[in-house]
Design a protein around this nucleic acid. Structure first.
Lengths: 248, 248
DNA sequence: ACCTGAACACCGTTCAAGT
DNA sequence: ACCTGAACACCGTTCAAGT
């Protein structure tokens, strides 16, 4: 048994453990209020709108007062990644494959609805109660498959990564970055067109071939729902094969 | 045939097309020089060290002079993602599965060696000559598998995403963010220990179980090389199954 | 045409001072 | 103990002025 180490204070607060204080004026805020305000700003204006000053003024407080609740802006961003996550669907009775497909899709959609998440979530492992609830339910869905604990964790991890990858790609080829506009690229067709104009067929033979076969400007675009399902099935087929091996 | 649209000027410059200029003093710099300087700073100090002023002073110029070569800092970051990439291995003669496994691994390692890439690469689709060369060679490796062009693109995309996912996870549980130190979390064992102290077994039954079975503090840690291979094989098994179906 | 230097409108974070 | 307000050391980017 290892010795308990003090937890980062954001983590404490994400779990609702505000420090118990007895004397002095009562706190006017708590972490959740601040986090919610920051999320609203991010949804409306993107991550660039989320300054300490903007968040503070939205909750009616001086910018520097936030540092009573958060050690740094980075901590605030961490708290936001948990605050945005809704409860996961419950897996009971659903076959593992159906559940995990749904689980992955909802995560992907959440990332697309709140594109600022893509920039933040990547760098922070799940630490808060909401994201860990998702983690838990995916593991639940894999019970009875015969996979070992490490294997389950690996499978879930791969699916989270897939949601992130797909959302990033869809977003990256889509409307473009917050304000950069990605200089007139919007959509896979534009992207393919751009590449066609840049690459020469001798140095990039296979890419040229694929572009000419129209892989990136079909009627449906490049990364659409069909592509999400395609990649997801690739992964789930792998999982299914593994489960088959373990069940033997 | 769609009409040509003007390319973003960073993209032009990434492809070596500096504007041809005839009068006035000769330019003292080019994009590659600036990009290389920025990369050296990022490698040494992380992305936080990369300010326009710092990059400019490293190439011996006033901060504002950089705007002759780059429209914005964001454009500089975009150029960095291509500048850091080495040439890909050549696939000729290698079986597709071996090649793609190597291809994915090198990308993963590159991301871990230059962790700042994780924050940038996500949001920018491949636009430069180096990253597109990688794309091309992966497509080449899939020639003769019977996959369609769209399928090939999807496979390659999934593998890129996997490299990103694995690197992010390894990094996120590792040393921690640039300077944030992630407050004393370093390594999967610490992470597992932290979770054990936070979650209660009734709300998080499967996660508790997995933690007690030691899935996250084995001798090898959580996300190590074995885990990289595990997830990769999951994907490649899926690809192999698909190829089998197409070949029939 | 290229580069400089001053200037602008911001940042995140500290710290002493009020209550 | 909580919050404010001034202050600090930065940012990215603009623009007129030099050559």
């Amino acid at each position: 048994m290892a010795q308990e180490r003090p937890l980062p204070s954001v983590v404490e607060r994400m779990w609702g453990r505000e420090p118990v204080t007895r004397r002095g004026p009562r706190p006017r805020l708590d972490l959740a209020t601040i986090t919610d305000a920051a999320i609203e700003i991010a949804d409306a204006e993107g991550l660039t709108g989320v300054s300490m000053a903007a968040v503070a003024s939205r909750v009616g407080v001086a910018a520097t007062a936030l540092y009573r609740y958060v050690d740094s802006k980075e901590d605030l961003l961490t708290a936001m990644t948990d605050g945005i996550v809704p409860p996961p669907p419950e897996p009971e009775g659903t076959p593992w494959r159906d559940y995990l497909a749904l689980w992955t899709r909802i995560q992907r959609d959440l990332l697309l609805e709140h594109a600022w998440l893509l920039s933040v979530v990547r760098l922070v492992p799940p630490l808060g109660p909401q994201r860990l609830l998702w983690f838990d339910r995916a593991l639940t869905a894999l019970e009875g498959t015969g996979l070992g604990p490490g294997e389950k964790v690996n499978v879930v991890t791969s699916l989270t990564g897939y949601a992130l990858t797909d959302a990033t790609l869809t977003y990256g080829l889509g409307v473009g970055d917050p304000q950069m506009e990605s200089a007139s690229i919007s959509g896979a067709a534009d992207y393919g067109e751009m590449l066609t104009g840049l690459i020469d067929p001798e140095t990039y033979p296979s890419l040229s071939a694929v572009l000419h076969e129209g892989a990136m400007h079909g009627a449906e675009g490049w990364v659409e729902d069909a592509d999400f399902v395609f990649g997801l099935d690739l992964l789930l087929d792998g999982v299914e094969a593994l489960i088959g091996r373990r069940a033997r």
